[in-house]
Design a protein around this nucleic acid. Structure first.
Lengths: 215, 215
DNA sequence: ATTGATTTTTGAACATGTTCAAAATTGGTT
DNA sequence: AACCAATTTTGAACATGTTCAAAAATCAAT
């Protein structure tokens, strides 16, 4: 029902699959719209009938990766994990899945940040948020009630930061990003524990209200 | 001595000036390399003799703006200002100067983030850092000694965040970014005051070590 | 089946960033 | 002045993202 397997959507999907394959093998700039069309056995203009731009294809690729991240991470958030572990898992998985597409970093950034207040941007955020909410909900002990509801936003923000860093991380094997992730997880977990203290709490509140200002 | 006004550098400068003017009037994508060359009375290929790419010109424009920001802000950091005021001034000035080039946001982001570990990136960082150091040094009361040295890094990080937000802020007149700046200044100032408390201090230390991990 | 509208496909064009070999110019050396 | 090497300039080409009018195919209604 959701996607009627009509000819039209099949063609679109063919185009998308070919694009993803070419992207993975030839990279972003190495993959030309002409190549995508040719490899799909279609004409160039036809590809543009289905995707208004190359960026639009990247956009779908990105959503694809977000979904993969979600489905790959979710089952790993098993009972017994603490927040630090779950956070580490989620961030590691993101890195794992994105790695083959490191070259797309800047394009992804555009996709992820520019579409902030659009319909598609909302879909993306909802996807991401759901996962971070689960990261929190699946952690034992549960984070302090006082910040339990707001924590997903913070984690999401942290991931954005790391994602941005990774996108422009030119160290071999994204070593710097890996190191960052490794250190972010315990620091964040500690922050959550300390959030029980009123001072820390008030700072977190400040930051949260900043985030709300911005969105 | 610094820039020998030889013909070569003059031509280069001419190209740059024309580019900046066109950028300001026609915008980024509205300004073509051909137009820049033509307006300068040069051939297209010649423009490429001086700038290896359009991005390279944007890069210079960005540095230009960084310098303008510095020289515009510095004299406003007058004695008697507290940290919040100075921070607000610096951020406001950045917004002011960048505003005509909002369309360049994504290109600037690439310039600012991608060149992180290159020679030019170092020059940029040095420029920015100097200013943030001055923001701290010119504030009365001086921030707690314990974080005085690290504060510039934090402020720089905050500015990066705001800059990123602004670059993709599509609200009319960048209203969202303005609101964010307005709120960030007091929150940051409060954070600095609270940094006297050991808990807060330890969190800041964590964050700082993360920043060091990453750079 | 014929017709007419809608969707899909094509092919050719365009705009622009970029490259490059060759020509023109410049500047120093004999 | 004549010559050579380095610098600058040109003009034509190329590659690729994108557009578009027209042709072809599909589909619904008579």
């Amino acid at each position: 029902m959701r996607t009627p397997a009509t000819k039209s959507t099949q063609t679109r999907q063919l185009l998308l699959d070919t694009a993803l394959e070419l992207f993975a093998t030839k990279g972003f700039s190495g993959t030309t719209m002409r190549a995508i069309a040719a490899e799909s056995g279609l004409s160039l203009g036809n590809a543009y009938y289905y995707f208004e731009s190359k960026d639009a294809i990247v956009h779908e690729l990105f959503r694809n990766l977000l979904e993969r991240h979600r489905t790959a991470t979710w089952p790993l958030l098993v009972p017994g994990n603490n927040l630090e572990t779950n956070l580490r898992i989620a961030l590691d998985q993101a890195l794992e899945i994105m790695t083959p597409f490191h070259e797309f970093g800047p394009a992804f950034i555009r996709t992820a940040f520019a579409g902030a207040h659009t319909e598609l941007g909302d879909i993306h955020r909802a996807l991401e948020f759901g996962l971070w909410r689960q990261v929190v909900a699946a952690s034992r002990p549960l984070p302090p009630l006082a910040i339990r509801n707001d924590l997903p936003v913070l984690l999401w923000l942290i991931q954005r930061g790391i994602f941005l860093f990774w996108a422009y991380d030119s160290s071999p094997g994204a070593a710097r990003s890996r190191r960052l992730i490794k250190n972010v997880a315990p620091v964040t977990a500690r922050l959550v524990v300390l959030s029980r203290m009123p001072v820390v709490r008030s700072i977190l509140d400040d930051v949260l209200s900043l985030v709300r200002t911005a969105s």
